[in-house]
Design a protein around this nucleic acid. Structure first.
Lengths: 369, 369
DNA sequence: AATAAAAATGTGTGCGCACACAATATTATT
DNA sequence: AATAATATTGTGTGCGCACACATTTTTATT
């Protein structure tokens, strides 16, 4: 009735050897005679042995340090939310002795990144969670990690040749296509659309250009290249050339929609459009920042694509922790769905995150995304 | 540096008593002198003690049976997917000795439900996951559970007065509003919309009427009650009256969209609309059943609201397991976000579920939803 | 004051596994 | 054949907690 688990002890008993020998066979450490090996293997082939992870864990009482190499959350709320997810994960994994150490760097300065990366290596962590937003500067870091056998998880930006433990993020090209789909829905020619990049280092981070590519391609497919797509790039908050171009774009009577490529940029764009009193222009942006949800309720923002930074970060830490604690390999590509938020389903998202903030639903066991 | 966890042993040492006494204080069992109590409490107030759940678990080696009281998955793929999520959860929790026992009942027969419910009680489970689709028939079952102190989790349909451990589902009214929002987007008067209920027991399950209510209210708000909304209800696959009404509806040139209230109904409706060669009518339905995703790629279905049955079921089991194993109270209301699936983000959802099916990403630790 | 009863406290064991180390069996060397 | 060297196998311990049980201290009773 109550089928007890098949333990090492049972294997030993069944094959007429000691638990020590079974242990050696299971982990192939130490020497085992051919005879003993055969006996044990026979028993193993007849009974499924699932090691009791709880017990295994109790014995080895080591702790793990995970280094967090992400942009400074004070400079961009997106990263602030991500950080939240990490600390939630840390809390979940507390019994497994997972500690996080953060190494923030400045989003627009490669130098700052390089310094932080050096510090990470110096700290000799057991694992790293990294947002490799600067391609060239990150490669040597990966090299060093491989040499030191430090597993790392990529976050947000994928670098395929990095041989990371896994990548966690979204399909950026497809993300642009979703944005375009939403912006095109029910629209007709003549039409003009804007793509806005706000304070991004487009030179070095391909991230945003991928989104733009998907966006443009979908629009060209839909309107057979007859729609006009203009891409604007603000370099700083005092970028005059941008302001001029934007005013120009906004004054165009055929302007049907604007797509912003980042979460904080969405807030900026919403403010600008509101000031221009253009609320017949459809605005598509990213993430449920507080400001964005308010602009959505206001009717300024029409669609938000939810990147789920919090959940992504949580999963990132979980992947590393699983690997370190349970030696469990992660799925190499962990693409989050491109979730569409509108005025009508916004609350169902916001309320959810409020529940989580209360920390009540923190479980000791995993949930699929 | 390596701050070790503060254990019972440490408390005992710090307060100059034995671990036995500390144990008695912590669990207030047995007698403890006022002096000893005070000493221990003092130490406890100065140091945070977090019991090591791993160790606690290892000792007590009991197992738990969770009864699953859901509609027969063979009759509706929705429940099949839900079942999948449960078994995934069972797998995740295997080391904690959580066993599932299923008690399927027929969706349209109260009697079948009552019989299954009786069997559940007879089996004396440690917890129950239940879809209370028949309101009146479920109440006595809840009563019995309370008497026998069996915790239960509600699934899909909420019955507030049941005092369940928690409810897992979606806001159905709002779900209807989301459907309406999607169906209205870019549409103009004159307009007619259809609501389809396929093979549902509308008398007894309020479930679907809630969705209809939200749908209608949003449309009336948007078109100032000038749009026509027709509700059709198929009672069986050979319902002639329905066929006639549907033909009538579909032939209306002002028909702009159709909303179907269930996942399998969405497939049915898509087939019917395809046969009527009406693919200029916007179709909004539920869930990523294989047929539905194919109809979406075909261009027949325009939007799917993802109810995430698999994830809901997974969470349901997890809530019960957490409660049983760790004595952890669940969030009482667990509303899933109303996720919108379109042609452009469909793949990001489907690929994800494929990843999960491979079972690779099964973690030992939880992820927020 | 001696003993019994009750109260309070301390000790020991097992949960399943990993790993160190002790013990035994086998083979090599002189 | 005796000893050393090596190969193989078995035993013991700790991880942190819960719980059973043994021991000691205090209080009640005669």
């Amino acid at each position: 009735m109550e089928k007890k688990n098949f333990r090492i002890k049972d294997i030993a008993h069944a094959s007429g050897v000691s638990v020590g020998t079974v242990d050696r066979v299971l982990h192939n450490r130490g020497k085992v005679s051919a005879v003993a090996l055969k006996k044990v293997m026979e028993v193993l082939s007849k009974n499924e042995y699932k090691p009791n992870l709880i017990a295994r864990l109790l014995g080895s009482n080591r702790s793990y340090r995970i280094a967090i190499l992400l942009p400074d959350p004070d400079q961009d709320p997106y990263w602030g939310i991500a950080r939240l997810g990490m600390f939630q994960a840390e809390n979940e994994w507390q019994h497994y002795n997972i500690k996080l150490v953060t190494f923030p760097f400045e989003m627009l300065h490669k130098h700052s990144f390089e310094k932080a990366a050096a510090k990470v290596l110096e700290s000799r962590p057991d694992g790293v969670l990294i947002a490799p937003i600067f391609y060239h500067e990150t490669l040597p870091f990966f090299e060093a990690c491989h040499q030191k056998k430090i597993p790392f998880v990529l976050f947000n930006t994928n670098i395929k040749e990095s041989k990371a433990l896994c990548f966690i993020g979204q399909d950026l090209y497809q993300s642009g296509r979703v944005a375009a789909e939403l912006i095109c829905m029910g629209q007709s020619l003549p039409a003009k659309f804007g793509v806005l990049h706000v304070d991004e280092d487009l030179e070095d981070s391909v991230h945003f250009l991928e989104k733009e590519k998907g966006f443009k391609e979908y629009i060209n497919e839909t309107f057979e290249s007859k729609a006009d797509v203009v891409s604007l790039n603000r370099t700083s908050s005092s970028d005059f050339s941008f302001k001029k171009k934007l005013a120009n774009l906004v004054s165009d009577p055929h302007l049907k929609g604007v797509f912003v490529s980042s979460s904080h940029g969405t807030t900026t764009a919403a403010t600008l459009l509101k000031n221009h009193r253009k609320n017949n222009v459809r605005l598509v942006g990213y993430d449920l920042l507080k400001e964005n949800t308010e602009y959505m309720k206001d009717g300024i923002i029409d669609f938000l694509i939810h990147q789920k930074p919090q959940q992504q970060a949580f999963l990132g830490i979980s992947c590393l922790a699983n690997y370190l604690v349970f030696k469990k390999e992660a799925v190499h590509m962990n693409l989050f769905p491109l979730e569409i938020v509108t005025r009508q389903n916004l609350d169902s998202y916001v309320k959810l995150s409020e529940q989580k903030e209360n920390g009540q639903n923190v479980t000791y066991k995993p949930v699929i995304i």
